[in-house]
């Protein structure tokens, strides 16, 4: 989408945490621009992909420090926006699906209450209107009995269902940009793909931007338009998803090779050899 101005521009983003054992650099010098497309961020645990997502929403807790040459969303400078401006952006313009429904849903509110809250805060609509929207959205994420789930508490639904509730909750305010942090890792493969299809349709129909964070390289390759590969806080490579199989960087190749494949059968899997030079080359 080079013809339109990108929705989100990130230049030279870094996130640091001062700790007792020195400065931990969670993200170093990340560049990213997102338009109306599906961007995948892939990496192992600890590679900084979730921290990148949080930095975009300015959700890095103290004493963490976020610096960037530019971090702007639709003309708003995120790093200098007032708390009021940020509240208007979070949830309504950019929303985020977190990884674990167990910790991200409020245990003492019913599912329906939590979903409609997001919608009513941002749209100021009546309760019955919000309820209608919520039920439609629960149905869209393939929850079989939306009326029952609407009245249920989070502990009364399964993990996979909790994840779908989270997605419904984030989609109800109709955001311009959705950040999905491992949104489907707790779901079964078929349900996972069905949920991705919903997100895909929203991107194509409503022109939403999507940042999809995942550790599943083959899934991202088949789902996203572009893929950012992160390792130890740095971007190793950015490539078009369809070219991922012919990626050049040794880290990307290593990750692809160590995946077991159905057709390959019982063979010894190549193990990833990490090269310290990968990190120096970018500094």
């Amino acid at each position: 989408m080079s013809d339109t101005k990108p929705l989100l521009t990130v230049r030279n983003l870094s996130v640091d945490f001062p700790t007792r054992v020195g400065l931990v650099q969670a993200v170093r010098g990340l560049n990213l621009s997102v338009g109306q497309e599906k961007i995948g961020i892939v990496g192992e645990s600890g590679s900084g992909k979730s921290m990148t997502a949080r930095a975009i929403l300015r959700l890095i807790p103290l004493p963490g420090r976020v610096r960037a040459d530019e971090l702007s969303f639709d003309g708003v400078d995120i790093l200098r926006a007032s708390p009021r401006q940020m509240r208007a952006i979070r949830g309504q313009r950019i929303s985020m699906v977190m990884q674990d429904p167990k910790f991200s849903l409020n245990p003492v509110l019913t599912v329906g209450k939590q979903i409609t809250e997001a919608y009513r805060v941002h749209h100021g609509s009546s309760e019955s209107q919000a309820r209608q929207r919520a039920l439609v959205m629960l149905d869209a994420v393939r929850i079989r009995d939306p009326e029952r789930v609407y009245r249920a508490y989070p502990h009364e639904v399964s993990g996979g269902m909790g994840q779908r509730i989270m997605i419904a909750m984030m989609l109800v305010p109709e955001p311009d940009l959705l950040i999905a942090d491992e949104p489907t890792s707790a779901l079964d493969v078929t349900v996972q793909l069905q949920v991705l299809a919903i997100l895909d349709d929203l991107v194509t129909q409503r022109g939403m931007g999507l940042i999809f964070i995942s550790h599943d390289l083959s899934l991202v390759a088949s789902f996203c338009d572009r893929v950012v590969i992160m390792y130890s806080g740095q971007v190793m490579e950015v490539c078009d998803a369809r070219d991922l199989q012919s990626a050049k960087h040794p880290y990307t190749r290593g990750l692809l090779q160590c995946l077991p494949k159905i057709e390959a059968g019982a063979i010894d899997l190549p193990v990833l050899e990490r090269d310290p030079a990968w990190l120096e080359a970018h500094e």
Partner: peptide, 14 residues
């Protein structure tokens, strides 16, 4: 586990 670690553990089990 991460895929790179998964490969190591699967190799070990085999």
């Amino acid at each position: 586990l991460d895929v790179s670690v998964q490969a190591e553990v699967l190799n070990l089990l085999r």
